[in-house]
């Protein structure tokens, strides 16, 4: 096994043969591109990219072979990789929901249309990719450029994650990420919810072009089933995320336990992703709101079925750091702040 350090040392010893202004072609990743992809990551990020995988060609090939990573690359005639974008399996429990959020261009080709051609090629392939049912991206709200570009490629904002740490400038305060969703293939599903978010949900579902049967549950309803919650900790972002698959009679105590875990781990944000295909998790929304959680929106297909996002922040988000590109994104922010303000 190659280590990150070995891989980076090897990449550092290879001369960069990319010359500017040459013709390029965009195509599917081939196993022989792995070395070029690793070289591109090294050229663009030096040794600072947080994930080891992209520095190690064998790992890139393995991830692609397993369908964990689906890249499109831009190559020069000599085979050098000058641009890279990919869908990747990230944190959603549903493997058919892939994340889109990587786009690299060699510095010699910045200011060119390479990224446009990469993104266009990826979007043109979506329908034909086996197992890919939906795609989402998280646009950091420092600027509106990413949001706008995403919307131009058919993504629709469905949720706003508040208070994510901006890694570039620690201490600069906490902004937000706009969750943008693009459907690939879907069918009518049941979306359980409580009265407090009914109006917002109708708008989000319509905006994302989804066919949903909105089923109202009484906040007092609970499943007799087991409580099943899986937590994920993101230390660098200061976030604890709880995937709430089902809630039984012990729901209140279990949810309190999760929140205590978040603060004990030093997190600033506690996120609850509630599986809306079941009445139990959706019925917990009023309970969470009384406990100071805000309704962040809908993450379609998170569990295969959709997730309702509820979030609680130790410190209020700084709205002036949140730049949004559209009226509907502004409405999401208003919704997230308004409901969060009930604490």
């Amino acid at each position: 096994m190659t280590t990150r350090a070995e891989a980076i040392a090897r990449l550092g010893s290879c001369p960069d043969t990319v010359r500017p202004g040459l013709a390029y072609a965009v195509g599917d990743f081939a196993p022989d591109d792995a070395e070029g992809v690793a070289a591109l990551f090294h050229t663009v990020y030096g040794d600072t990219y947080p994930l080891d995988a992209y520095y190690i060609p064998e790992t890139i090939r393995r991830l692609c072979g397993q369908g964990e990573l689906i890249p499109v690359v831009a190559r020069l005639e000599g085979g050098e990789v000058i641009g890279f974008t990919a869908l990747y399996k990230a944190s959603p429990p549903f493997p058919g929901l892939m994340e889109f959020g990587l786009g690299l261009v060699h510095p010699a080709y910045r200011g060119s249309f390479v990224l446009f051609h990469l993104f266009s090629a990826m979007m043109a392939r979506l329908e034909a990719l086996p197992g890919v049912e939906a795609v989402f991206g998280e646009a950091v709200c420092d600027t509106i450029i990413t949001q706008h570009a995403s919307s131009l490629f058919g993504f629709h904002e469905t949720a706003l994650e508040l208070g994510l740490m901006r890694e570039k400038e620690p201490g600069a305060g906490r902004g937000a990420c706009l969750v943008m969703f693009r459907n690939v293939r879907d069918r009518r599903r049941v979306l359980h919810h409580t009265a407090c978010c009914a109006g917002h949900l109708g708008r989000l579902v319509a905006g994302a072009g989804l066919d949903r049967e909105l089923v109202l549950v009484d906040g007092g309803d609970t499943d007799a089933g087991p409580t099943r919650i899986a937590t994920q900790l993101f230390p660098s972002a200061g976030v604890l995320r709880a995937n709430v698959f089902s809630l039984g009679k012990d729901r209140e105590a279990e949810l309190v336990k999760i929140e205590q875990q978040a603060w004990a781990e030093g997190c600033q944000v506690c996120q609850m992703y509630l599986d809306a295909s079941l009445p139990g998790p959706a019925a917990a929304v009023p309970l969470l709101r009384r406990a100071g959680y805000g309704f962040g929106g809908l993450i379609p297909r998170w569990f295969d079925s959709d997730a309702l996002l509820l979030q609680k922040l130790l410190d209020p988000p700084r709205a002036e750091l949140i730049n949004l590109y559209s009226a509907s994104a502004e409405a999401l922010l208003a919704m997230a702040l308004e409901s969060g303000g009930e604490a």
Partner: peptide, 15 residues
């Protein structure tokens, strides 16, 4: 085919 499929429920050993 007409139903929205479910994703695997995260069952535990003693369920």
């Amino acid at each position: 085919e007409g139903a929205a499929p479910v994703s695997p429920f995260p069952s535990q050993a003693d369920d």
